[in-house]
């Protein structure tokens, strides 16, 4: 059994364009990964391929589960709750999650709801962007699973909420679970990342441990990441 997340020869085309090609990636259990890349580079697509929401070629395995249906048991993704009517209340959304995910831990959800100050009686339509993001994070982390995919969890969020979300991640991530956090801006999460994966030129451009980058190149993660987009960078 190969534990963790493995992608082999993954390719994805959409609308007669190649979005991703030759994606090979192995992530070992327990790691927190920063998935970086410019807007539209294919970060979200990569996550959607892993969940099975997008259909591409190649092999994707989470703890040996390769079939999409089975894989879904092992992955929790920050979906944007668009399948719910706008009038749906937060607690109804929570009940939906409790119903359909056998690994949803209501106790954990309640702890996070308190910590992130989420009001269960509100309707989805009346949530602010930050509040909705916090709800999505709480729902995603409340599942006890092997892989968490957080797609740009900090976009449009004030710094106070951002810190709370980062603390929730540290607090509630199971020890051997993998967490992938995508962002096009790295500095706010750099300190909690084990590794970074950079999506560039329609493939995985770099995959390296953050402390290795700091030791080897004597630069910060943000500076390193930015240097990848400058001509003739010297970290190859």
């Amino acid at each position: 059994m190969t534990a963790g997340l493995t992608l082999q020869g993954v390719q994805y085309r959409h609308g007669m364009k190649t979005i991703l090609h030759d994606v090979d990636l192995t992530i070992t259990p327990g790691k927190i990964i920063g998935l970086l890349g410019e807007n539209g580079a294919g970060k979200t697509t990569l996550m959607r391929l892993i969940t099975g929401s997008a259909k591409g070629k190649g092999t994707i395995a989470i703890n040996d589960a390769t079939v999409v249906g089975e894989r879904k048991q092992h992955v929790s993704f920050t979906e944007q709750l668009r399948g719910f009517a706008r009038e749906t209340r937060v607690d109804q959304v929570v009940n939906f999650y409790r119903d359909v995910y056998g690994d949803f831990d209501f106790q954990r959800y309640q702890d996070m709801e308190t910590f992130l100050q989420i009001d269960g009686s509100l309707k989805l339509t009346s949530l602010s962007k930050g509040m909705k993001e916090k709800l999505i994070i709480a729902l995603t982390l409340s599942r006890r699973t092997d892989l968490y995919l957080l797609d740009e969890p900090f976009s449009g969020i004030d710094s106070m909420s951002r810190k709370r979300i980062i603390n929730s991640i540290l607090q509630w991530k199971p020890d051997d679970a993998i967490m992938v956090i995508s962002d096009h801006y790295v500095s706010e999460v750099a300190a909690i990342l084990d590794e970074i994966v950079v999506v560039k030129d329609q493939t995985i451009f770099t995959h390296e441990a953050t402390d290795t980058i700091r030791e080897k190149y004597d630069v910060g993660i943000e500076a390193y990441y930015e240097s990848l987009y400058e001509k003739g960078n010297d970290y190859d």
Partner: peptide
């Protein structure tokens, strides 16, 4: 800074379950 303590609660065991 949050006075956050790691929880001592025993949460539900992780399980692989398909939805019925």
């Amino acid at each position: 800074m949050w006075g956050l303590k790691p929880t001592t609660r025993v949460y539900t065991k992780r399980g692989t379950t398909m939805t019925s």
